Simulated assay, not measured.
Amino acid sequence: MAEILVLYYSRGGSVAALARQIARGIEEVPGMQARLRSVPPVAVQTEVAQPPVPEEGAPYVSKRDLEECAALALGSPTRFGNMAAPVKHFIDTLGAEWASGSLVDKPACVFTSTASMHGGQESTLLSMMVPLLHHGCLITGIPFHGTALSDTRTGGTPYGASHYAGPRDDNTLSEDEAALARGLGTRLARVTRAMQHA
């Protein structure tokens, strides 16, 4: 059973909801299993140790999760058109993994959520792709053909799954958002399985 790491940071629950849908999509593919992990929050003093297990939700990620995964789905809320600081902070600690090539040739995808309709979903997704490309990941997105991308009136982009939470931070995904996230997970898993049998 190949495991795909679904790694995310979520403050209001929207990114976590997308992560669960991506995990469902992954597990629709025979031989594939999702491993949900979260990134710990950071504070002004980032040297403060975080507890090894959060009080609720997915466990915090370890470097071992990156080594063991067959592929990676990375998610973050949008902060001014960019990934949130906890995700960037975690990525910035991956120098040894970059040097060893632990993510080279692993398929990857990205996902996000915003409080405003034009709050920078696509730029956030692109910002998360850049370090993944530096690590040698093979990026996959959502094709327009055969998906809800042409119909959605909320989240969803060709660069990755997304959710429009609105000013009240509603973490309930629309039908299209959920379908696109599941479809992205399934696509990532199919690409991963195809590469394993190549």
Rank of each mutant, 00 (worst) to 15 (best):
M1L: 09
L5G: 08
V6G: 06
V6N: 00
L7H: 05
L7G: 09
Y8G: 03
Y8F: 15
Y9I: 12
S10G: 07
S14R: 06
V15M: 00
A16G: 05
A17T: 06
A19K: 07
Q21R: 15
I22N: 03
I22F: 06
I26Y: 10
P30N: 10
A34Y: 10
A34K: 10
A34S: 14
R35F: 09
R35Y: 04
R37V: 02
R37E: 05
R37F: 06
S38H: 01
S38Q: 09
P40Q: 12
E47A: 14
E47W: 14
P54N: 13
P54H: 07
P59D: 12
P59F: 13
Y60Q: 03
K63W: 04
D65R: 01
E67K: 09
E67I: 13
E68G: 10
C69W: 01
A70V: 08
A71L: 11
A71R: 03
L72H: 06
A73P: 07
G75H: 12
P77M: 01
T78E: 13
F80M: 15
N82Y: 14
N82K: 08
N82Q: 15
N82L: 07
M83S: 09
F90M: 14
A96H: 12
W98A: 12
W98T: 10
D105A: 12
K106Y: 07
P107D: 08
A108K: 02
C109H: 05
V110N: 00
V110T: 14
F111S: 01
T112Q: 07
S113L: 13
S113H: 10
T114L: 11
A115R: 04
A115D: 05
S116H: 11
M117K: 13
E122S: 01
E122Y: 11
E122C: 04
S123N: 14
L125P: 00
S127C: 12
M129C: 09
P131K: 12
L132V: 00
C137I: 10
I139T: 01
I142W: 06
P143W: 01
P143C: 10
G146Q: 07
L149D: 02
S150H: 11
S150G: 15
D151N: 07
T157E: 01
P158N: 08
H163C: 14
Y164W: 01
D169H: 14
D169T: 11
D170F: 10
E175T: 13
E175H: 12
E175W: 08
L180C: 01
R182I: 10
R182T: 08
L184P: 00
R187M: 03
R187E: 10
R190V: 04
V191L: 15
T192H: 02
A194D: 14
A194K: 12
A194S: 08
Q196Y: 08
H197Y: 06
